[in-house]
Design a protein around this nucleic acid. Sequence first.
DNA 1: TGTACATCAGTGAACGCGCGTTCACTGATGTAC
DNA 2: TGTACATCAGTGAACGCGCGTTCACTGATGTAC
Lengths: 232, 232
Amino acid sequence: MAAVRTSKPSGAARKARRRATARGNYHHGDLRAALLAAAERELAENGVEGFTLRGCARRAGVSHAAPAHHFRDVRALLTEMATIGFERLSESMRAHACADPPGSPGHIAVIGKGYVAFAADNPHLFRLIFRTGLLDADDARYKTAGTDAFMFPVRAVAAIAGCDDPMADPALAARVIAAWSIVHGFSELMLAGQFDRAAYGGDRNTLIGDLLPRVVAGSLAKPAPLRRAAMQ
Amino acid sequence: MAAVRTSKPSGAARKARRRATARGNYHHGDLRAALLAAAERELAENGVEGFTLRGCARRAGVSHAAPAHHFRDVRALLTEMATIGFERLSESMRAHACADPPGSPGHIAVIGKGYVAFAADNPHLFRLIFRTGLLDADDARYKTAGTDAFMFPVRAVAAIAGCDDPMADPALAARVIAAWSIVHGFSELMLAGQFDRAAYGGDRNTLIGDLLPRVVAGSLAKPAPLRRAAMQ
DNA sequence: TGTACATCAGTGAACGCGCGTTCACTGATGTAC
DNA sequence: TGTACATCAGTGAACGCGCGTTCACTGATGTAC
């Protein structure tokens, strides 16, 4: 898991940190970034249930009153974490997208793999993103990060369908929503341990890679009844 | 929203309640059922974040120590609620399933509609079901209720494919998982308010009804590139 | 280069809160005789 | 039918906990002159 990036890892802050370390550390130097990194560990280890501001401060090695200088309240810190989560989700999709060029049927599948991979690697962060009840859902940066992530399936469908704005076309919009739904649902059910019960031993990449292109670009012909023999 | 059913709404309990009401109410008469009903209101109004045992006791009109006689701890109460949630999810799928006979391609779609309808009508209860971190995930009744719900898509695919155990066939199992994923993901994203951002104005029944049969029973031919003109 | 001073970013004590759980208790109920 | 008694299902006080937040403070930093 990569370290949390600060929004502005300024050179000045790094310089201050070096000074602080050299001279003793009454002033931390870059506590904001340290708190975000601590919050990520807190989230990964305790889940969102056990997430506390005091715990983050402890992990960062400062008094529990210190975070108030950097985050208005615990909600603001969680919203920042969720924003970072959305950004990382986008990064994961972008990184996987290279495997298959836009416009090819496989493109949507590799984006989906990037989505599921992020969820698998960052379970608590992934779930936090969608816990809007705990966040400042109207925060501008959070909203932007969410929309940026949503644009991945939108652009993929646009490239396949050869149009600019798939969301303007009800049938194409349904494909976008369906693609998002299937990877999201798969991720959530996986994290909730539901596939243990389901005794589903299949490889997630096979499922996403095989079925997702069909959901997005599959034939519009009326589906024929499916017989077992036809599957093999 | 239907009232929470007790596991054993015995006649004796109802009789005791009547007596208690008539004579004063030191003894409640059927506090277990009343606590479950209170827990449902607590959940619906406060969400799982704001759910407390004391709050349930207040809603039921008893002291906060009273629930201990009926539920070992708050986890046990939540697990009971989640079990009831799974049972209601099954009921919703069963109720919708009548609209289209098993084996027909539309059968899986109406089951999916039942799934999404339950989530839309019971948002907090729906989300609780999958918050395994808050529950006794090994509780026998909880596990049974979950497996019962899972059997709905399994049976639907079995009927369409004409085999007994689709989960034994990797390709069919993938269809089951995909069907579950798409309705689950759609439900979660809907409840998280993500479709506001997506500006998706489409009707959920259209999406599920049109695409879900395709996911489950759609052609296995290599999907052709999708052009906008082809969609209309 | 030194110095005075404003500002910044920490500290630690304290506040009030509501929680889950425990405990001794007591009133109500049910039953054996 | 009456009575003694065990059991059940409540009460209310109390405990300890950790939380978020506030506050006056202070040490460190940066800058104007």
